[in-house]
């Protein structure tokens, strides 16, 4: 089909070392990453995690799609930083470091801003690496080996797999309505584009449930999978090392009371102002770009 609205986070087929790691081992790492990211406030740890995830990308051959998927971080991250500088999420008193127009900039929130950003960046990058290198079926096959009920697996799998289907559907519907002269923006475009999508979705789910039941979905017995997933010794090593390292660091962080090193780092007023200007510019740049795109015919 023409409107290949390729999902930015779809799996990128490949046979790299990362691709071949057992999905459970990867899942351990992702979960470990999230736990560690939210139990520490140490920016060195957080950005090392992000860097590590980033380094996996060239190994897996997914650098370009990963960076594309990570673009979502630009508006999120820049708004986060900018907000923390003008309205720190720490207790007053705040120390003003500069003024831009009506806005007073404070240095107190910037560390916390970087922590928040680091958590998101680290977790998202590793999660993207995992999603982009793991066939959904493999993940669910592995999960069912761990005795996760297959109906639950199926629901997860369907949710993931239907997204590209619907994206394609939306593409076709938008093409069809544009061919009828629909302007493709504003409120007038909502009904013509969404009614067919929803009706199509409901019909699809109905058909799916009928076809599933006709193939014995819900019957008892052990489910097997067409795709075989192996757990090699190396997978065990990766999984266990991940669990120990990330779990250990999390425990250490919690023991150190979030391991906050903000007192060791002094951000110069100039750095704060520059960071604010850059992040605010990026954020408004993204907003303006989105407005521009929506206004463009």
């Amino acid at each position: 089909m023409s409107m290949q609205a390729a999902l930015p986070v779809a799996m990128i087929p490949g046979n790299s070392i990362i691709h071949r790691i057992n999905p459970i081992a990867k899942l351990v790492w992702v979960v470990g990453y999230v736990v560690l990211a939210f139990s520490t406030q140490n920016i060195v740890v957080l950005y090392s995690m992000a860097l590590f995830a980033l380094l996996l990308a060239p190994i897996a051959g997914i650098t370009k799609p990963l960076l594309k998927g990570a673009l979502i971080l630009v508006p999120v991250g820049s708004s986060l930083l900018a907000l923390q500088i003008i309205a720190p999420a720490v207790e007053r008193p705040w120390t003003p470091v500069g003024e831009i127009g009506p806005l007073t900039l404070y240095g107190d929130g910037i560390y916390y801003g970087f922590v928040l950003l680091g958590r998101i960046v680290a977790s998202l990058l590793l999660a993207l690496v995992m999603v982009m290198t793991t066939h959904p079926s493999d993940l669910f096959t592995s999960l069912s080996k761990l005795k996760v009920p297959y109906t639950l697996n199926f629901m997860l799998a369907m949710t993931l797999q239907l997204i590209p289907v619907f994206q394609r559907e939306v593409g076709i519907i938008m093409s069809a309505q544009k061919s009828r002269g629909m302007k493709g923006k504003g409120f007038s475009a909502v009904l013509p584009s969404f009614v067919p999508v929803f009706v199509g979705a409901i019909e699809r789910v109905q058909q799916l449930s009928i076809s599933l039941e006709s193939r014995g979905f819900g019957s008892n017995g052990i489910k097997t999978s067409y795709r075989q997933v192996r757990g090699r010794p190396s997978d065990w090593v990766i999984g266990i090392v991940g669990a120990l390292a990330l779990g250990g660091l999390s425990a250490y962080s919690i023991w150190r009371g979030t391991w906050n090193i903000s007192s060791d780092i002094v951000f110069s007023p100039l750095f704060v102002v520059v960071t604010f200007v850059i992040s605010a510019t990026l954020f408004f740049g993204v907003v303006l770009f989105a407005v521009f795109l929506s206004l463009k015919k």
Binding site: I172, Q177, P196, G200, E203
Partner: peptide, 15 residues
């Protein structure tokens, strides 16, 4: 206005 395109599946355009 110049060219009309009838898509294969009418469900893709009716709303």
């Amino acid at each position: 206005p110049h060219v009309g395109y009838v898509f294969q599946n009418p469900n893709h355009q009716l709303f």
